[in-house]
Computed example of a mutant assay.
Amino acid sequence: MSLGPYASFIVTSYLAVALVVALLIGWITLDYRSQKQRLRELEESGVSRRSGRSATDMR
């Protein structure tokens, strides 16, 4: 497969996009773990989530 005179630009572009996507996946994974840990700490300290209550509990 010949990419022509722009082969280096095309390959570099694909590598850059792959790197950005990998970084975003890593960032989202780390943030998810951080949010889960923070939520666990809040629940352990007695703070409850509104979404965990039923409609009768809100009265």
Rank of each mutant, 00 (worst) to 15 (best):
1 M>V: 13
1 M>S: 13
1 M>H: 15
1 M>C: 13
2 S>R: 13
2 S>I: 06
2 S>G: 07
4 G>R: 08
4 G>C: 00
5 P>K: 14
6 Y>G: 12
6 Y>R: 15
6 Y>H: 12
8 S>M: 05
8 S>P: 01
8 S>T: 12
8 S>C: 00
9 F>Y: 09
9 F>E: 12
9 F>G: 05
10 I>H: 05
10 I>F: 02
11 V>T: 13
11 V>R: 09
12 T>M: 11
12 T>R: 14
12 T>P: 09
13 S>H: 09
13 S>Y: 06
13 S>A: 13
14 Y>E: 15
15 L>D: 15
15 L>H: 11
15 L>E: 15
16 A>R: 08
17 V>D: 14
18 A>D: 12
18 A>W: 01
18 A>F: 08
18 A>N: 08
18 A>Q: 06
19 L>E: 14
19 L>S: 14
19 L>F: 10
20 V>P: 00
20 V>Y: 07
21 V>A: 01
21 V>E: 01
21 V>M: 00
21 V>Q: 03
22 A>H: 02
22 A>Q: 02
22 A>R: 01
23 L>N: 11
23 L>G: 02
23 L>Y: 05
23 L>C: 15
23 L>E: 13
24 L>Y: 09
24 L>W: 07
24 L>E: 11
25 I>R: 08
25 I>P: 02
25 I>L: 11
26 G>I: 03
26 G>S: 03
26 G>W: 01
26 G>Y: 00
27 W>P: 01
27 W>Y: 13
27 W>E: 09
28 I>R: 13
28 I>A: 09
28 I>M: 09
29 T>Y: 02
29 T>V: 00
30 L>P: 03
30 L>V: 06
30 L>N: 03
31 D>L: 00
31 D>G: 00
31 D>M: 00
32 Y>E: 04
32 Y>I: 02
32 Y>V: 03
32 Y>D: 04
33 R>D: 10
33 R>C: 06
34 S>D: 11
34 S>F: 06
34 S>V: 06
35 Q>M: 07
35 Q>A: 09
35 Q>P: 00
35 Q>E: 10
36 K>Y: 04
36 K>H: 05
36 K>Q: 12
37 Q>L: 09
38 R>G: 05
38 R>Y: 09
38 R>N: 06
39 L>C: 00
40 R>C: 05
41 E>Q: 15
42 L>F: 13
42 L>R: 14
42 L>M: 11
43 E>V: 08
43 E>P: 07
43 E>T: 10
44 E>H: 08
44 E>L: 11
44 E>S: 10
44 E>A: 13
45 S>D: 04
45 S>N: 04
45 S>L: 00
45 S>E: 07
45 S>T: 06
47 V>F: 01
47 V>M: 03
47 V>H: 03
48 S>P: 05
48 S>R: 12
49 R>K: 07
49 R>A: 02
50 R>V: 07
50 R>A: 05
50 R>H: 05
52 G>H: 06
52 G>T: 09
53 R>H: 09
53 R>S: 10
54 S>R: 01
54 S>M: 02
55 A>T: 07
55 A>H: 02
55 A>I: 09
55 A>G: 05
55 A>R: 06
56 T>M: 04
57 D>S: 00
58 M>S: 11
58 M>Y: 04
58 M>I: 10
59 R>F: 08
59 R>S: 08
59 R>H: 03
59 R>N: 07
